[in-house]
């Protein structure tokens, strides 16, 4: 009576699995709450829902409609209805499909975002690993230190690189002091693809560190001990244990860097030269300078499609799986 080796119901050792099991299916949406749903639910979710419908969903829909309209005479949009019939056209899409220049800009944006993602990964990995393996009491502080620059103004962070890469900066002078005696033209670090990439990496780095850290922190240190015990050296332990286990974090970080980097316009605008036109600059140009809104909308829709497809892909790749 006092012992029960088979039943597995030793008091205290068994978890309250039943409570948890019921919560998983029932307690989160118990049916007494169903009664509140009629009024309570709409009272609570109604206002944010309404706000986001008006200021996010409807503008997005307008953009979709705008992409099918011809441009207005003085820029902007032509009226949607003319002479009683809908004034729709595929003109803007045809223009995008017909001109390889735009595809080159898309391709360039993808390449820049890709390089940015890779650089961020290489820089972020040791940082995330160090924080994840620090004593627990320092981790939050070390992480806060990684995130803090991210919370400072985006433009300030880009502007900082204008100073560092500027023609009179110590860095520029040092580089040219090496380059010129070798017979090369003096180089300008600022207003170059290099500057754009540095800016992109700098601005997006925390987005890579966060998911990596979140993943690495959960690793059981015993796994590494076990690997070492089985004869793996430091290099093998990293590539055979740590890195494969961190892949979900890598994918999540890649998405968080790649997607915003794809749409950026201010960094090429500030740090880049004339050839550094990315898709973001093109969109900005269509809306504010050329005022070809239908075409700008088409470009935006394509960018949205790419971004959502990538976000979906990353979510799928890094979906939670059975963990060790």
């Amino acid at each position: 009576m006092r012992w029960k080796p088979r039943g597995g119901s030793m008091p205290g050792t068994s978890s309250p699995a039943e409570g948890a099991g019921v919560s998983a299916s029932g307690a989160r949406h118990p049916s007494w709450q169903a009664r509140d749903r009629g009024t309570g639910r709409w009272l609570v979710s109604g206002p944010p829902l309404a706000y986001l419908l008006v200021f996010f969903a409807i503008p997005a829909l307008i953009m979709v409609v705008a992409s099918f309209t011809p441009p207005g005479e003085y820029g902007g949009l032509a009226p949607l209805f003319e002479d009683g019939k809908a004034n729709l056209t595929l003109e803007a899409y045809e223009r995008l499909a017909g001109d390889p220049i735009y595809w080159e800009v898309f391709a360039k944006s993808v390449v820049y975002a890709g390089i940015t993602t890779l650089c961020c990964l290489v820089l972020a990995y040791p940082l995330a690993m160090l924080v994840a393996r620090s004593p627990r009491k320092y981790r939050d502080l070390l992480m806060l230190l990684v995130i803090l620059p991210f919370w400072s103004n985006f433009l300030i962070r880009v502007y900082a690189w204008m100073i560092i890469l500027g023609p009179q900066s110590a860095l520029s002078r040092a580089v040219n002091a090496v380059v010129e005696p070798l017979g090369f033209e003096p180089v300008s670090l600022l207003f170059s693809s290099f500057a754009v990439l540095v800016g992109l990496v700098y601005v997006h780095l925390p987005f890579m560190v966060l998911p990596l850290y979140a993943n690495l922190e959960k690793h059981d240190p015993a796994l590494l001990d076990a690997a070492q015990d089985l004869g793996a050296n430091a290099w093998q332990r990293f590539w055979r244990v740590t890195f494969p286990l961190s892949l979900p974090g890598v994918w999540a970080g890649a998405a968080l860097v790649f997607i915003p980097a794809l749409g950026i316009f201010a960094i090429p605008d500030i740090l880049g030269g004339t050839e550094d036109t990315l898709i973001g600059n093109l969109i900005k140009q269509q809306f504010l300078e050329t005022r070809d809104w239908p075409f700008g909308s088409v470009l935006s829709i394509v960018l949205t499609a790419i971004a959502l497809a990538l976000a979906g892909l990353a979510a799928w790749v890094s979906r939670p799986r059975r963990t060790a």
Binding site: F55, I264, S300
Partner: peptide, 17 residues
Amino acid sequence: TPIAIPEILMGVSLLLF
């Protein structure tokens, strides 16, 4: 979604709106 997509998209669609 507004957090997940590039900021510029929300900017231009609100401009249109």
